[in-house]
Amino acid sequence: MRVALLVNPAARAGAHTGAATNAAERLRAHGLQTSILSGGSAAESSELLRAAIEAGVDAVAVAGGDGTVNLALQELAGTGIPLGIVPAGTGNDFAATLGLRELDVAAAADAIAGGVTRSIDLARVTRDDGSTRFFGSVLASGFDSKVNDRANAMRWPRGGSRYNIAILVEFLTLAGIPYDIAYEGADGTRGEVHGDLVMATVGNGRTYGGGIPIAPDADPSDGLLDLVLVRPAGRLRLLRLLPKVYRGTHAIVPEVSITRVRSVRLASPGVTAYADGDPIGALPLTIDMVPGALTIFTP
């Protein structure tokens, strides 16, 4: 089996570790022909991966975090070429949803060499200009996208703790944001939400921000998205909500609603959405599900 192992040296964290080299050595020890692809930018990395796929690789592996995995999703969606993940990034939320987050390099490489795969869904974002992009874990807009803005600009600390700090800082200027939302529910019925929200989040996976279970019951194999809406409340009340968010028990709070949907359109002026930890576009955006779009290696 020929494997293309993607690592992005422009990633914010984890890309300069020895994860890729160690994974490649482990894969080769299993008899797999493994080539490391490392572009100087996200665009160059995508080009290298696209060329490898066109040349006929049998599998793709990524040594990195959600941002680098997201690059691979764009090229692999719908191809049937399996993806292996060596978690080596800041958040690794997509890997967490798939049960791979805690794997070390050797175990992740062994899962690829083992050859066991399964199919999962991907969420597809359509912008107003008609362009599209896939994501695997969570799309965030509103308060949580502002947290992403702040966390991504922070040089210290590394890891998931910077998201915690960013959350607390953003609370100082917390305010409701006007939204217009239209969705198709799991049973095909249509629904709309209009008015101020703190945030509107769409989950294919369960966690974001390095393990925060914002959509605790999301299943990337059920053909549905989890739409999580948080309505304004007093700042102190929302601050008290945070421990429930970290435990994944926030669905019981009156200001929170979680709805299973087939598709959803989010509109709000001046709001940029993030997906898999990176900016994906300004609202309005339409998000729908592509069932079974990705094949992944699993232990």
Rank of each mutant, 00 (worst) to 15 (best):
K146E: 15
A153R: 15
V125G: 07
A123Q: 12
S141M: 04
A151Y: 09
F135I: 04
K146N: 12
G130S: 09
D129R: 03
D149M: 10
V138Q: 01
F143Q: 03
D129E: 11
F135S: 03
A151H: 08
N152S: 09
N148L: 06
L139S: 03
A140M: 05
S141A: 13
A140T: 12
F143V: 09
A123C: 14
V125I: 15
G142E: 07
N152W: 03
F143W: 09
D129H: 04
A123K: 10
S131N: 08
I120C: 14
D129A: 07
D121N: 14
D128N: 10
V147C: 11
G130Y: 10
F135M: 04
F135H: 02
G136A: 11
S141I: 02
S145D: 09
D128F: 06
A123L: 13
F135P: 00
T126W: 04
R124H: 09
S131I: 02
G142V: 03
F135A: 03
D144E: 13
R124V: 14
R127L: 11
R150G: 02
A151K: 05
F143E: 03
A140R: 00
V147E: 08
L122Q: 12
N148Q: 11
R133D: 01
F143I: 10
A151G: 10
K146V: 07
S145P: 11
D144I: 07
V147I: 14
V125S: 09
G136T: 02
V138N: 01
D144H: 08
F135L: 05
S131Q: 15
D128S: 15
L139G: 01
D129W: 06
V125W: 07
G130F: 09
R124M: 15
V138M: 01
S145I: 06
S145A: 15
F134W: 11
S137I: 02
R124A: 13
A153Y: 04
F143A: 05
N148T: 04
V147F: 12
V138H: 01
D121E: 13
S141R: 03
F134E: 01
A123H: 11
V125E: 11
V138G: 02
S131H: 10
V138D: 00
A153V: 03
L122P: 14
D144S: 12
G142L: 06
D128R: 13
A140P: 02
R133Q: 12
T132P: 06
F135W: 06
R124K: 15
A140L: 08
I120M: 14
D128L: 14
A151V: 10
V125F: 09
A140H: 00
R150Y: 02
N148E: 10
A151T: 08
S137D: 09
A153L: 13
L122I: 14
A123P: 07
S137F: 00
F134V: 01
S137L: 00
D149V: 14
F143H: 01
S131R: 13
S141H: 06
R133V: 03
D144R: 02
S137E: 06
F135T: 02
L122V: 15
S137Q: 05
R150I: 08
F134K: 00
F134R: 04
V125A: 06
V147S: 05
T126S: 06
D128C: 05
T132L: 02
F134L: 04
